[in-house]
Amino acid sequence: MPEGQRADARRNYARILAVAEQEVAAHGPEASLEQIARIAGVGSATVRRHFPSRQALLEAVSEKRIEALRLRAEDLAGEQNSRDALLTWLSEVVAYCVSARGLAAALAYDEDPTQNGCAAALEEAGRDLLARAARDGAVAPDVTVADLLSLIVGIVLISQYAPDPEARADRLFQLAVAGLSPQR
């Protein structure tokens, strides 16, 4: 929320964001902006003034989760096994995306990837983990965090309607990590 706003504008922003978090959790990224406005007790123009696009709303709703994932990447950076550290973090990104229904959609917006705050923050957070794993030969050197986030978004979006989305997303993630070759 921009600094210097009037007290009532700050209250409206906080109320809209709280309602949006609940509505996105309940209805996913397509939660009705009109319903959010109605529950928050403001007009839809007020919602659009604070969040000029659905992407802006999803990014605001996801901000705390993204920060938690950033901090977790920092924690894992000190782990001895760089591959395990990276895979642990990526697995936690999958779990967060499944539990926070709007997060995968927020990451998927790509009209202008440089303007996607969620994706940019996660790319930055995972950059050191991936670079270290690549240096250690645990990951192919041409893999990017953007590649991995795209894979995660696809897994989460395809799993969201499964009877057990968490289990389905985890299975697909583990399959992607292991590859198709039989275990030796």
Rank of each mutant, 00 (worst) to 15 (best):
V61D: 10
Y96V: 06
E92Q: 14
A176F: 12
Q22I: 04
E34C: 04
E3H: 12
D112P: 02
E166K: 11
L129I: 07
T88F: 04
S32W: 07
N81Y: 03
V143G: 00
S181C: 04
G179L: 05
S82V: 07
S159T: 02
R70T: 14
F51Y: 14
L58K: 10
R11I: 09
G43K: 08
I152P: 00
Y109M: 07
F173W: 15
G154W: 03
L130Y: 13
I155S: 00
Y109K: 09
A20F: 05
L129A: 05
A140S: 09
F173M: 03
A104N: 07
R38V: 00
A104V: 12
D136C: 02
E34K: 12
I36Q: 09
Y109I: 05
A169V: 07
V98Y: 10
A133R: 02
R184V: 09
V145T: 00
S32E: 09
A7Q: 12
T46A: 15
V19F: 06
P141K: 09
R72F: 09
T144I: 00
H50N: 14
S82W: 02
E67F: 01
V177Q: 10
V94E: 03
R48C: 06
A56H: 14
A162K: 08
Y13C: 01
V143H: 03
A25Y: 03
R54S: 06
S91I: 05
R101P: 04
Q183I: 11
A73K: 08
Q80Y: 08
V153C: 03
E79W: 11
E111L: 15
G43R: 08
R11K: 13
A105N: 05
S99R: 15
P141I: 04
H50F: 08
P52W: 04
R127K: 13
G4V: 06
Y13W: 14
Q160T: 06
R65V: 09
A9Y: 04
L76K: 06
Y96R: 06
A20M: 02
T88N: 05
P29K: 01
G102V: 00
G117R: 15
P2F: 10
A119R: 15
A140I: 01
V139L: 06
L122H: 02
A162H: 13
A77G: 05
A176Y: 10
S62C: 13
Q5Y: 10
P165A: 07
V139R: 11
A167T: 10
K64Q: 14
A176T: 13
A169R: 09
Q22T: 12
E124K: 14
I16L: 00
A133P: 08
A7N: 04
A60F: 04
E79R: 13
E21D: 08
R38G: 02
V143N: 01
P52T: 08
L87D: 13
R135D: 14
V139D: 03
S62H: 03
M1W: 04
Q174M: 10
R127V: 00
Q115S: 11
L17Y: 08
P29S: 15
K64W: 01
E21L: 05
L57Y: 05
E79I: 01
A119P: 01
L157A: 11
Y13I: 05
A131G: 02
S82A: 15
L157K: 13
R168K: 12
A56T: 07
G154T: 05
